[in-house]
Write a protein that binds this DNA or RNA. Structure first.
Length: 579
DNA sequence: CTAGGGTTAG
């Protein structure tokens, strides 16, 4: 007779905490079949999305028998809404296993989850079940199916499903437009767009952002002006389009002329400033914002981290946790903060986040975070920890491999670095410019000149054009082996202007091999390219000393000293040398 | 219930 009493508690908008207590009680009483009601209430409760609810939902779903179909469907929709597409899909699979028949809502949610994950197999499987359950005539289900295929880029099948629909709504049309735009078929997208019976603001927005993504701002602007109705998304699409093609001032003009903005308008703008290194404007915008949230903090912290200002990044992270601010970080925050730690070589703080903070806050690990940690541990010498994390990756992508290759390189495991590189290319993951920087850095620590040449030359095969950084690594490798003339020739063969890094590498090599003639040439270029750095002068002075040219060394050191006191504009150190 | 915007790791 306990049962009716308990059920009266439900549907009364209990708080998450109260529901939690109720759940405990139910379990103690052995009334597990009521768990579904708890889930439903958790979902429909007025409380905002919070990590505790989501965490709690996961617990219920993983530890107990599945509830009824409607509750499971509600949970799936809840997960979809908050990005838990994998959970939603798992739930669907669980539903299937326990022999429960899904409703059209269930199937539509599951399809949405597949579309967002990009799970083609899952989508096709459910497509089959749509026929089995006789859901073919349902607009929502069929629209969701179109969504699966457009997101996969399979416009042929999408078109087929769309064609066979007995009834279409504006969402079905919009999905098709979006699909064509994403596959780069603007002509067909235009045709479909003009054929939509009742265009809504989404149809227009899809077109605008389709063009703005590719940087065709003329077309985007034309559509934007023609739109009968605009919303925040239309404006934000214009802002990000202008940022994409480097027109920060125009982006800002749009931003300023918005009557109301949201967080995304602001973080788009901050991201734009971040990309072009304008930390000051980014910070100004950030500080002027009145409604703070974790996205804004993430954007600003990322701006600092990306622009080599790890200290400021950590400071802002600290500010975010202060009780008067009290904004909860998420995975992205932590990934960025860990990257700042590894720039600073701060293993203590970084591993504290890994070992304690994540447990405290219930933030779970993902591959982005793992990769950031791999980089941190590897750069701080804990290569074993890095390896452990590397093996735990769900899927190893080019970024993870690059971090590991570089990590092996700086920890004296060059052979493993090469092995990892080959393993990566064999599994059809394409290396990029950063990967080669990592590999060449690894090789520069040992005298493997031929191996380095081989790898350097192989860049072409991947369609990669070496940057000055790659050349300077090669110069360093040749220089270490004492092949200075060869290094000099490589520099002369560069298709672009060598930078100070390249000449600096040669100068350093000359100083270890006491080569005056080439050293002077290298130093001359360094002075021209980076007149305010005194390090080059010291290197050349060392070369002079090593061959007994004490007078030259003395004169050079003196002028370095003077330069530290009085800055002479336009004066090259070579002028002093050639006196 | 379906569609549309931004941010994270080398």
């Amino acid at each position: 007779m306990l049962l009716p009493k308990i059920t009266t508690f439900f549907n009364r908008s209990l708080t998450a905490k109260q529901l939690k207590q109720l759940h405990g009680f139910i379990l103690v009483q052995g009334l597990n079949h009521l768990e579904g009601l708890i889930i439903r209430d958790l979902i429909t409760s007025q409380s905002d999305y919070s990590q505790s609810i989501s965490h709690y939902l996961r617990l219920i779903l993983h530890h107990s028998a599945l509830p009824d179909v409607d509750s499971a469907t509600s949970a799936m929709r809840y997960f979809c809404k908050h990005g838990g597409y994998h959970e939603a899909f798992d739930l669907y699979v669980g539903l299937q296993r326990s022999g429960l028949s899904p409703s059209t809502f269930t199937v539509a949610s599951a399809l949405k989850a597949c579309a967002r994950i990009g799970d083609g197999n899952g989508g096709i499987m459910i497509h089959g079940q749509v026929y089995k359950y006789g859901f073919c005539g349902d607009v929502y289900v069929e629209t969701a199916l179109v969504g699966v295929y457009t997101k996969l880029g399979d416009m042929e099948t999408a078109h087929k499903v769309f064609d066979e629909m007995s009834e279409r709504n504006v969402v079905s049309w919009n999905s098709m437009i979006d699909g064509y735009l994403r596959s780069g078929d603007f002509a067909t997208a235009e045709v479909v767009f003009s054929g939509v019976p009742n265009k809504d603001v989404v149809s227009w927005n899809s077109m605008v952002s389709g063009y703005s993504r590719t940087g065709d701002m003329e077309k985007a602007l034309k559509l934007f002006d023609e739109m009968p109705e605009r919303n925040l998304i239309s404006w934000n699409a214009m802002i990000s389009g202008y940022i994409e093609c480097g027109k920060l001032d125009l982006a800002r003009k749009f931003y300023d002329s918005m009557l109301q903005r949201n967080t995304i308008s602001c973080i788009t703008m901050i991201g734009g400033y971040s990309k072009c290194g304008d930390i000051v404007s980014a910070r100004k915008l950030f500080s002027e914002t009145d409604r703070m949230d974790h996205l804004l903090y993430n954007a600003m912290i990322a701006c600092y981290a990306k622009n080599s200002r790890p200290k400021e990044a950590l400071q802002l992270f600290d500010e975010m946790l202060q009780t008067n601010v009290n904004i909860q970080p998420n995975k992205m925050t932590l990934a960025t903060v860990i990257s700042a730690c590894s720039q600073l070589g701060d293993l203590t703080f970084g591993s504290w986040i890994h070992e304690h903070y994540m447990n405290q806050t219930g933030i779970t690990m993902d591959d982005h975070l793992r990769t950031a940690l791999i980089d941190l541990y590897a750069k701080c010498g804990s290569i074993d920890k890095a390896f452990k994390l590397f093996h735990n990756l769900q899927n190893k992508d080019v970024v993870a491999y690059t971090a590991m290759i570089l990590g092996c390189g700086i920890n004296g495991k060059q052979q493993i670095a090469i092995k990892l590189f080959d393993e990566m290319t064999e599994s059809k993951i394409r290396p990029n410019l950063v990967t080669f920087s990592g590999l060449l850095t690894a090789l520069s620590h040992v005298g493997m000149v031929e191996e380095s040449y081989h790898r350097f030359n192989s860049m072409k095969r991947y369609g990669l054009v070496p940057t000055p950084n790659h050349f300077s690594l090669m110069v360093e490798i040749l220089g270490r082996a004492g092949r200075l003339e060869e290094a000099h020739n490589l520099i002369k063969s560069m298709p672009m202007e060598p930078d100070a890094g390249v000449w600096g590498a040669l100068l350093l090599a000359c100083s270890t091999h006491n080569d005056v003639e080439l050293g002077e040439i290298a130093a001359k270029h360094c002075f021209e390219l980076e007149a305010d750095s005194s390090g080059y002068g010291s290197l050349l002075a060392n070369i002079y000393s090593s061959v007994g040219r004490w007078e030259d060394a003395k004169r050079l050191r003196k002028s370095i000293h003077e330069k530290g006191l009085v800055k002479v504009p336009g004066s090259s150190w070579m002028d002093h040398l050639q006196e």
